[in-house]
């Protein structure tokens, strides 16, 4: 197979202040599907077209934000190899093996902290529960989408944007240790050689994770979910307004990645995005560069300027 190593962001664990309102948001409004709850009170969810058991984990606690982001790798052998590479790289810290079953239907996970302070995990095995489209058994003669979807109902958890200080360290780690490519970058300074934003891909997507340099550790800007069309982004805006969900900005377009987007907040203030579009990324393509002066249209192509909340509001 051509796509090897790290396959995709496989799960994001989000901290919520109150589980009840969080479930109304993530299930009824966003339209994820609950697949499990555990004895710790965590709730596991997936988007409809994901085959793996879960892609979002909610945990009720006193602080909002992201606990960790988990990456699916292609095999247990790759998991072992990358865990060794990560320890040897000296770029990360706080290594830990999380035993099989700590997430339901999930194999062992290797956990570590990257230079921007975010906790990451790699895992190779998660039960495939399917997308409920098959008409004569799972994945046999499937319909294009299943009945019974609720709310916005994105097809998948797609990426996160994270804020942290040591951008160079985290970018070096994802590129050199995990083999990601840099699809787009934002450069500052008189010589345009100081990176303040990086959009990284391990696949054909314009980004699987992005980082923006901010003087903080381990902060979460948003988790994003994919929609199939611009019209569905508009429909998402309708559903959010109908439910009086706090909307940050949009629908609009990003210059960076070209995605059509709407940003909004879960009931604990964690930012979510649903988006469509973008382009196919190949690792042999040159990186797209945005200069600091054009970061406004880079982020919000129509407004051509950042809203203050883009840089200041995160959890």
């Amino acid at each position: 197979m051509a796509l090897t190593g790290v396959l995709r962001p496989g799960h994001v664990a989000i901290r919520v202040l109150e589980m009840g309102p969080a479930l109304k948001h993530y299930i009824d409004v966003l339209g994820l599907i609950e697949t499990a709850r555990d004895e710790k009170g965590r709730v596991f969810l997936k988007a409809w077209d994901e085959h793996d058991h879960h892609s979002v984990v909610l945990r009720e606690t006193d602080e909002a934000g992201m606990d960790y982001l988990g990456w699916k790798v292609d095999s247990p052998a790759t998991l072992k190899k990358l865990a060794g590479d990560i320890e040897k790289s000296k770029l990360c810290s706080d290594f830990e093996w999380i035993p099989k079953g700590e997430h339901p239907e999930t194999g062992e996970r290797f956990r570590f902290t990257i230079p921007t302070g975010h906790v990451m995990e790699l895992f190779a095995e998660k039960k495939q529960v399917g997308n409920n489209c098959g008409t004569e058994g799972p994945n046999v003669n499937p319909d294009p989408w299943p009945d019974g979807l609720k709310g916005i109902s994105p097809s998948r958890f797609d990426h996160c944007l994270l804020y942290g200080d040591d951008l160079d360290g985290s970018v070096k780690f994802f590129r050199e240790v995990l083999g990601f490519g840099i699809a787009e970058q934002v450069m500052a300074g008189p010589k345009k050689d100081f990176m303040i934003g990086a959009f990284l891909s391990c696949s054909n997507k314009a980004h699987d994770v992005a980082f923006i340099r901010q003087p903080v550790k381990g902060k979460f800007h948003h988790a994003s979910f994919e929609l199939g069309s611009w019209e569905k982004v508009l429909r998402a805006g309708d559903i959010l307004s109908r439910n009086k969900t706090s909307i940050d900005i949009g629908p609009t377009r990003h210059g960076i990645t070209r995605g059509e987007t709407i940003y909004f907040f879960d009931p604990s203030g964690n930012r979510n995005e649903v988006f469509s579009g973008g382009y196919i990324y190949y690792p042999d393509e040159p990186a797209i560069t945005w200069t600091e002066e054009e970061l406004g249209p880079g982020i919000f192509y129509h407004d051509r300027k950042l809203n203050e909340a883009f840089l200041s509001v995160f959890t």
């Binding site: 706090s246 940050d248 907040f265 879960d266 203030g269 959890t315």
Partner: peptide, 10 residues
């Protein structure tokens, strides 16, 4: 005004 939901501190 930030998240309006008790998370961001704006």
């Amino acid at each position: 005004v930030g998240c309006r939901n008790g998370g961001c501190g704006a």
